[in-house]
Amino acid sequence: MKAIIYVTLKSGIHDPQGHAVQQSLETFGFHAVDSVRIGKLLEVDLNETDHTKAEAVVKAMCDKLLSNPVIEDYRFELS
């Protein structure tokens, strides 16, 4: 199975990168942009075939290493 994991800053936490990109888009005339938030995308190939087990293991790795719960949230898709 493959896990696509998104790690993003929690809402309310200032994202200097996102802010810089938003300002840059504004400079280029993209006035439709209100805000930009930047996160990380991780593609993880798993040798697990059971969906429930895969979900548990991906959750565990997100909690232990891939995200910092003080500042980040995560979500993932399995396919």
């Binding site: 200097p16 003080v70 500042i71």
Partner: peptide
């Protein structure tokens, strides 16, 4: 030490990157 939880809080990227 922050990542290890031996101190509280976390580090973000510098304000002006």
């Amino acid at each position: 030490l922050l990542e290890a939880g031996l101190l509280p809080g976390a580090m973000l990227k510098n304000r002006y990157l």
